[in-house]
Amino acid sequence: MGSQADHARHWREVQRRKRGHTLMFCAGLAAATLWSAWMSDVNLSKLFSNIGNFFGYFDRILTLDSGPAMGRRVWTAPGEWLWGLDKWLPLLADTLLMAYLGTLLGALGALALCFAPARNLTPNPWARVAARRFLEFCRTVPEIVFALIFVVAFGLGPMAGVLAIAVHTAGALGKQFSEVVENIDMKPVEGLMASGAARWPTIRFAVIPQILSNVVSYCLMRFEINVRGASVMGFVGAGGIGQDLIEAIRKFYYADVSALLLLIVLCVCVIDFLSEKLRHALLEREAHA
């Protein structure tokens, strides 16, 4: 009887504590929400009175605003709508190429830097911390900020964009690679070290074969992200299709905005699809081997 009462009391106690935690969590969340709503000038009445503009904008960008088919929906006159295809497709190709080169250079940088921060390969804590901080810096500073700075240093054009993507990619991939490196099987490494191999041969023959499939898969994912990133590099003058897009938005060439958005979204979707297929194929091959 006594133990039952104890048990009931304990149960109530646990329940009360749990409720207390939930209440505290909700209160914290509400406070943070109110603070951020106040900080960011949330104005719901403006949103609701102007929400029509949002859909109205889509209505306007889907209507041809010049030429013989003026006033009609864009898809009724695709030739009019996509009049700039000859100019836009090369720009789109440039954007993809920027993403490709940026990912490649960044991945090479990440591959060179990812062994230093790994606990199992670099016993020296100072080297490890230095490498980690450097990678953190590279991935925390947004690539558009790098692009803004590089445009000043290297001049307007895609070169600044590629370098900005590369630096950011090196930071992001470097962290992911070094996590993969920390999770490898150490036996091959010990085997090579026991036979007197130096650092780089050890990495080449004991580490690289273990991390290669993960590295490739992370690179493909990063390429998908970088295609999106490259599409807005033109906003700050760093090349690609973004330049035409921001011009169309700023100068109210409504039909052009929708055409460019369509091209970008289609391109991103196709790249995502292909890269997903490729990654699955790689994983399958890995499972068979």
């Binding site: 000038d41 949330v42 503009n53 999106r228 990133g229 807005v232 958005l261 970008i264």
Partner: peptide, 27 residues
Amino acid sequence: DGVRGVDMLIWALLWINVVGLGPFAGV
């Protein structure tokens, strides 16, 4: 997929049309 394909900066430009310049458009 379509929403994800458009970069955040582009969404920001679109929302500025609705609620004007400022942090609310960013939210």
